[in-house]
Amino acid sequence: MLLISCPWCGPRPENEFRYGGQAGLTRPAASADDATWSAYLYLRNNPKGRHQERWRHQPGCGRFFNCERDTVTDRISNTSKIGPR
């Protein structure tokens, strides 16, 4: 079980969190073409190695935050609050 550090609440066990998938996906404009929408909805980097992802501290503060984790070792190198882009 991972030990994940919520930027608001501190380190907590993995089963207090919901995985939120790849971070940094930007919702396209409604007028964007099918390929842009398809990429936003379905295409993922799915890297073997360093991964920028989101987690949500569901039963705690309930907030989403960013996390950098290595998908081979599962080691988390950083968690941070979601800020303005």
Binding site: M1, L2, E14, N15, R18, Y19, G21, N46, K48, H51, E53, R69, T71, V72, T73, D74
Partner: peptide, 13 residues
């Protein structure tokens, strides 16, 4: 496991 990973192991829970 709930998160994407290539670690051919997985959590014990």
């Amino acid at each position: 496991d709930v998160y994407a990973s290539y670690s051919q192991a997985g959590g014990l829970h």
